[in-house]
């Protein structure tokens, strides 16, 4: 641990990131350019989130790291270890006990509370990128609030499929001003972005952008009056904990087409099972899980 500064990054880098975070907080939904550093893990694997987390951590923190909602996926394990090694912080899998949560692709099911920080790993921060590849152009669009293109795209979906065919990384409009990419979370999670008591920070390392949603900020999923936004999920209950309203992973259980659905949020699922909830294929909690 003595080989590195607290939380790995040098102080000047942390100051630069902290200044960017504060500007992001002051301009909700706006992507602040920052001089992302080359981290000892590959771009695209959470370098932005890691830098934001490193800039936020204090020794007293309890850190939770999830990937796809799960604490034990290999990349989550790797990032959690990185901070245990370089910052010596305590770690937890319990959402309610964590002070800082770094996530990839999910917002935990357990509602967050004041004093918590949720750090998202973001691959492509620009919500307009797939409509217009040029940064020089999309920056202009944000400046002029020219969001017609994205509405046209959503509308074309409706014309072709009868509904909006965007199921994750579903764009939101923040405080009536900036259109923002919430990172590739399923649109099921979008409603949790808005009016959340926690601070939400978004870090895109390779693309060198940080943005933020302060607590209790409005974030409206783009839609049309006759095609309102719907937060959808697999139409099942969790087969382990019987939760009806949590986001589900589909697991293929044999080569005959059998499948089961389980909570993608492993902490949520385990807590429910510990509390005695048993799903279709579950078994009463025995403490071995």
């Amino acid at each position: 641990m003595n080989d590195y500064n607290f939380a790995y990054l040098d102080e000047q880098t942390k100051r630069m990131i902290r200044r960017a975070i504060l500007k992001g907080i002051a301009i909700p939904g706006y992507q602040v350019p920052f001089a992302s550093r080359e981290m000892p893990m590959p771009y695209g694997w959470g370098t932005g989130g890691v830098q934001v987390t490193a800039a936020c951590l204090v020794p007293e923190d309890r850190l939770k790291v999830i990937d796809q909602g799960a604490d034990d996926t290999t990349n989550a394990v790797s990032i959690r270890r990185f901070f245990q090694r370089t910052a010596g912080v305590a770690v937890t899998e319990a959402t309610a006990e964590a002070t800082v949560i770094q996530t990839r692709h999910r917002i935990p099911e357990t509602p967050l509370s004041e004093g918590q920080i949720l750090v998202y790993q973001v691959p492509i921060p620009e919500p307009l990128r797939f409509l217009e590849p040029r940064e020089t152009e999309t920056r202009k669009m944000h400046e002029l609030e020219e969001y017609g293109l994205i509405h046209v795209k959503l509308y074309e979906d409706i014309a072709r499929h009868g509904q909006i065919a965007t199921s994750y990384a579903y764009p939101v409009k923040v405080e009536g001003r900036y259109v923002m990419d919430p990172s590739p979370i399923p649109k099921f999670d979008n409603p949790k972005l808005a009016d959340n008591p926690a601070i939400q920070l978004f870090g895109a390392g390779r693309e060198q952008r940080i943005y933020a949603l302060p607590p209790h900020t409005s974030a409206v999923s783009l839609d049309f009056e006759d095609h309102p936004f719907v937060a959808s999920k697999a139409d099942h209950a969790c087969d382990l904990c019987a939760a009806e309203a949590s986001y589900l992973d589909e697991v293929i259980t044999d080569d005959q087409g059998s499948r089961m659905f389980v909570c993608s949020d492993t902490d949520f699922c385990q807590s429910r099972r510990a509390a005695g909830h048993v799903g279709r294929l579950g078994h009463p909690a025995t403490g071995d899980q």
Partner: peptide, 14 residues
Amino acid sequence: SARAFRAALEAMAR
């Protein structure tokens, strides 16, 4: 500075 930043962050965020 880490602890100070957390206060500064919370202050700006709330």
